[in-house]
Amino acid sequence: MSRRRFKPATASSHWPATGAVFAFPIAFILLPLAAFLAYSFFWTEQGVMSYALTLRNYARFFTDPVFLPVLRQTCVLCLEVAFLTVLAGYPVAYFLASLRGRIRYILLMLMLVPLLMSYVIKIYAIRSILGGHGALNRALLWLGLIDEPLTVFVFNLNAVLLTLTVLLIPFAVLPIFLSLERIPRSLMDASADLGASATQTFMRVILPLSLPGTITALTFVFVLAIGDFLTPQMVGGQSGFTFGRIIYSQFGTAFNWPFGAALSVILAVVVIAAIALGTIFGRDRSALK
């Protein structure tokens, strides 16, 4: 009998073990985040840190003419990336979901494998493809569409947009695939039996049912894109300035950690808002089902 009630017994006799389980996450996740939040309320001037709490960093963000426009521009850019990846990812997910048997999972795996390939290398390779001597320009020259290599694809926001889109497509395919896969085939058959054309079935049955996955995909990609500072740093050049780069520069060249922390808190708020919106809209639609 006593053995059967082992659960409460272990729970009380394992307090040290419980403490050990909590120790690492608290010491290296919770406390750093708390320190980081606290830092955003400090102030530094000419290398001297003031630990008195102040809102000056946030005030600077909202009053300086540079930062708000860059944040808005970055949000627009990342939304564009999200929509482009979904635009490219939806047909792929649809095709994969329409396959039968093992091949769909093998292809899905192949779609995801590039995610584990070196991020820096992919950025670098895409930059060389987009560049003056790159494959894209050579293809355009060969097709006779242009007379001399174009430079509009590197070292500006277009380059950041294209690069991020190529890098993040798999993140859009996966959630859309998962939501398409869950739609029972009988629903499509029923729709066809009731006289709906293929287009009508898609527009009125498949598309609404796959909307939660699509929204998840948008959120995923947006969050990943807005947090990235490597891609804009590498392909953005002088004009391709993004919010992530500004944050990174506060910890490097500008060396203003409290201000950098405040900017990151704002980034975190944007990310949380995006995730919350994604969850709300994703859930509402599936509730209609």
């Binding site: 290296f28 406390l31 750093p32 985040l33 320190a35 980081f36 830092y39 969050v223 990943l224 807005i226 947090g227 990235d228 500072f229 992530g244 944050i247 990174y248 910890f251 950690w257 950098g260 922390a261 990151s264 980034l267 975190a268 990310v271």
Partner: peptide, 12 residues
């Protein structure tokens, strides 16, 4: 985003 995890640890 990883940048926030990294910065938090850096400050900490």
């Amino acid at each position: 985003p990883p940048i926030i995890t990294g910065l938090a640890l850096l400050i900490y």
